[in-house]
Design a protein around this nucleic acid. Structure first.
Lengths: 221, 221, 221, 221
DNA sequence: CATGAATGAGTCTTCATTCAT
DNA sequence: TATGAATGAAGACTCATTCAT
């Protein structure tokens, strides 16, 4: 299942079918919402369009999510939940610090490459000054294991003498994420300014190699 | 000067006043538009609001810019023109490569710190898939001197043996800009996730130091 | 320069040029107005468009004609004046009643064929319930010689025994005009309904022959 | 039924009321639209006014007809549908050719006399150069039985030796319709020019007699 | 649960007209 | 005279949301 929100438990027998249908209708709405909000932002997205893409009646938006904002919040929670899920799958324990760090940088890059909707929704949320992320208890408790993995890898590397000691994990995280994120989030304006197609597969591969080298070089003692 | 090229004020009494008044209505609209579009995006911005903030009649938007999109385009051109203007003021010739690179990284950081509207407009433009930047001849010809300065500084440093030779200038630019840009563009969500106020002055200063160190470290041979 | 392009002030002596230019500006406005009002009706016509087509400043409309309605009235008077002028050129005295009547019918047809704007303006004026024609003293005193010519021709023919005596001139006029007018005024819907191109030159010629024959046949004793 | 196809009334209590209510909102809009468009033309008509007259919310115009043009098209189809309906009720088979022709001419006159909105909408549509009638499949397939009745009556009369053989049915139709149509469509300007009240009941009756006589006289061998 | 109808508060845009020079 | 700037009133159209069944 792509979303996390568990529907409220119902015990009526006949409602089984309804639950199935409900769950899929609800999920379809969330999936459609992620696409619409990512493509057009909160203000530009249309409830009608979301319902249409999901193939359900518009009223269900209000039934499940109260209003457009409620749907937006759930969509945001959903994309965060997805990345958290993927992050948990990372297992760095068997790797040395250099390899582990390389894995972390690569993961950051790859996830953004494959999930443009994550970038778009984050972007919109930042224009809202983080209104929803701050209002959502679920989001606040949805701790990322990534920063802890990064911290642990950094420590291991410092101790092993392969990483500089001067960086704190949060700043390192922001730099590591930033070199990938900015490439994707501003791909169109960068392409226009430099007159290069930065969304071409070859440009992507080249960029991926660059960001790993760049971060690891910066970490050298 | 904040808006598009306006003729310098002249001292002829009669005609000047008219020109000034005309220019100021137009300029006031552009300034207000930058603020509105930055705060709410294209879809969320309200023509009424822009005119109200500018203190002029709403219909002047249509008189001067044809429609909301026209105003948006001019606002976008305006913020690009501003940064290009500042970039031209950079003079690195008297500096050694290390100092010059440090200056470039610091400039990137400082400009974004002082111009959140630049970030917001770029962000929105990227959600539009760069539609306006591609459509604007003015924007396409508004070449940035920055990338050439970076290229020159990089070459100087490589020749002097203080920089690695492996980076190409565009990728280096994106990394250098990204470590600052991402910090500002995603400040709210990062603050929420890390439970830190990354917009506090001290966090800003600390980040500034980090990005300069990070980039220069990555450049070491 | 982005602001108002100040026109080079010309202080050439002769007001002659201005007067000449005035007269032609006024005429140009009337000509453009006839075209616009004919093409789009009073409500659909745009003052800006009229001024643009005439190549003069919009303000002149208000200077010469007070407002849009004033211009419309003058345009209407103008097309009436034109047809009155043409009607005066008809000289039937040397013809027999049959030939004269044929001439009158042919004239009605030809004038409408050549002056679609006359039809369009009359049409719009009728939708206004004749508001302007009733309000205009000029139009009310712009007597048509046509109806008197028709009356005289009819009398001559009745006396000569070649026309029936039963028709009164006004009804005859309306019938004679109607068989041509309806063909032109409703040419598009008639073409669509009958699936024929009634605006083709051959259809026009055929129609012309028909209306003359039809009216003369109806007049036979 | 006056408006476009409405679902046949059913007798289930609940659903019927809804359908009726739905249908009536739609029908009320069409009826109001016919009046407004006839009175002021497409450009002059106001959506607000139409909704107000219909007593429904303005936005239902967009709900049912997409936009102003869509409503205009349906209004046009509606008036065409009305006349087609009436035409079908004509039964000429039991009459001789003279009586039948007289019936056809009288019908043309009477329908226009009773349906000024039909004239007005046709007029506006012709100013549009038949744009809507050409775009509407419904209108193109809404064949008129009138022209076939006229053709049959003409043939019968020619064979019986009471009508001239020279007229083709389309030209005859245009002449027959034109002598009535022009009288009504241009009633106001004609009244003004001739200084007669051509919309008085007596003038109407007199005109009716004239057009029948005129057409039948023209048809005599 | 599901659905189309309905609505009110906007939202961009137009346009005739006036102002200032 | 002539012109661009400016304006108020209104117009078409949108959209999140609610109602009724």
């Amino acid at each position: 299942m792509t979303t996390t929100s568990t529907p409220p438990s119902q015990s009526k027998s006949a409602s089984t079918r309804r639950q199935v249908s409900s769950a899929s209708a609800r999920d379809a709405l969330i999936a459609a919402a992620i696409g619409e909000f990512a493509a057009k932002g909160f203000a530009g997205a249309r409830v009608d369009e979301i319902a249409g893409v999901a193939g359900v009646n518009k009223q269900l938006v209000y039934h499940y999510f109260e209003n457009k904002q409620g749907l937006y919040l759930v969509a945001l929670e959903s994309v965060y939940a997805q990345i958290r899920e993927k992050e948990k799958a990372l297992s760095l324990d068997a790797m040395g610090p250099l390899e582990a760090m390389s894995e972390l940088v690569g993961f950051s890059f790859d996830y953004l490459a494959e999930h443009p909707e994550f970038i778009s929704l984050l972007t919109d949320e930042n224009r809202n000054r983080g209104r929803y992320i701050l209002a959502s208890d679920r989001l606040k408790t949805m701790h990322s294991p990534f920063i802890e993995m990064l911290e642990a890898t950094l420590s291991r590397g410092v101790e092993a003498g392969v990483f500089r000691a001067e960086y704190d994990a949060v700043n390192l995280y922001i730099s590591m994420a930033g070199v990938s994120y900015f490439f994707f989030s501003n791909n169109h304006t960068l392409s226009a300014i430099f007159g290069r197609s930065l969304d071409a597969p070859s440009a992507l591969l080249q960029r991926r190699r660059h960001v790993i080298a760049f971060v690891l070089n910066a970490l050298r003692p």
